[in-house]
Computed example of a mutant assay.
Amino acid sequence: MTGNQAQRRFFRSTRGRIVALLSRQGATVEELARELGLTDNAVRAHLAALERDGFVVQRGERRAAQGKPAYLYELAPAADPLFPRAYLPTLDALLELLTEQLPAAELERLLRTIGQRLAQRWRANEQSRSSEPLSRVRWAVAVLNELGALAELEVGVEDLSDCSGSQARLRAASCPLAALIPSHPRLCLLVEALLAELTALPVRACCCCAERPQCCFEIDLITEH
């Protein structure tokens, strides 16, 4: 299922319809129930789930002409990615144009530079200054997961006490650039450069760029002296 298909499916669900209604303006339980043809309790259950996921928040109250004030629900900033955006087709078109107009070596240099610049957003973190190579690798895995990967180090690497001359392999079942990798496999170089910049270690991409891409990077755990 593509991202757009998943979004359409979500917005056909009751919770998706609640999110769509709240995107227009804040609403009370009673107002949402009336729009959706549901009971107040059913709406409260869905709102509780959306609040738990961080998509909806309570903001103040709305006073009715009669009766008690009702809580007003609004969308939280975390709900923004639920809505379709033009980022993906725009980036795809940009990469197609760059691939057509730039020599391969220049395109690869550009992608590596982007990866290095992206890493700068995290380089101020204390973990980036750790003298332990494996600590920096673990931290880089956390950064990659923050970007949407489901990354982990291969079994056995975590138990290494002397990293000199050893190698770690990072695998991710979910690639953060999965929608673009099949058409633009050179994007793996961007992530390779990101990891190299974060860890200050040699990194080599060994990714699977098939229809469902999976990240794989080999990292040399060289201890500095």
Rank of each mutant, 00 (worst) to 15 (best):
L195W: 03
A173L: 13
T28P: 05
R112S: 05
R136L: 12
R212Q: 15
R52Y: 07
T28H: 00
A172D: 01
R123K: 14
W122A: 10
S128T: 12
E146W: 04
T14I: 13
L72G: 00
S23E: 11
V29T: 15
A93D: 12
N125H: 15
A27C: 10
I219A: 01
A33M: 08
F11S: 11
D80C: 06
L221R: 05
L102V: 08
P89G: 10
L94P: 04
R169V: 15
F83M: 01
L107I: 01
A78C: 02
V157W: 00
L189K: 07
R63P: 07
G156R: 03
C206S: 14
Y71K: 14
R129I: 01
L195T: 08
R8D: 15
Q58P: 02
R138D: 01
Q214Y: 05
E152Y: 09
G37M: 06
H225T: 14
A79W: 03
P182V: 08
L147E: 05
R62S: 06
A168Q: 08
A42S: 15
A140S: 14
E30I: 13
W122P: 00
R136T: 12
L50H: 01
A33I: 06
R204S: 15
R117E: 13
E146D: 09
G26I: 00
E132V: 11
Q7S: 10
L95W: 06
Q127D: 09
G3E: 12
N145A: 04
S164Q: 15
F83A: 04
A124E: 09
P81W: 12
C207Q: 05
E132P: 00
R204K: 14
Q66D: 13
A86D: 08
N4K: 13
L72W: 05
V155F: 09
L198G: 02
A124P: 00
A70I: 02
R112F: 03
C175T: 06
R212W: 10
E51K: 08
R212P: 06
L36I: 14
L111P: 00
A20R: 07
E100Q: 12
A42P: 02
E51C: 02
A86M: 05
R129V: 03
R15Y: 07
H184W: 03
L144M: 11
S128F: 10
P176V: 08
A205C: 12
D220I: 01
R24K: 11
L47T: 04
S131H: 03
R171K: 10
R171T: 11
R12W: 09
E51W: 00
C163W: 14
Q66E: 13
G3R: 13
T2V: 00
V141C: 03
L134K: 12
R186D: 08
E96I: 04
C175K: 09
L98N: 05
E30G: 02
L201E: 05
L144A: 10
R62P: 01
V191T: 12
L110R: 12
A49L: 13
T113P: 00
A210R: 12
E96M: 11
A49T: 14
I222S: 03
G115A: 07
E100F: 06
L38M: 13
Q7N: 05
L111W: 01
R44E: 14
P89R: 11
Q66K: 13
F10S: 04
S135R: 03
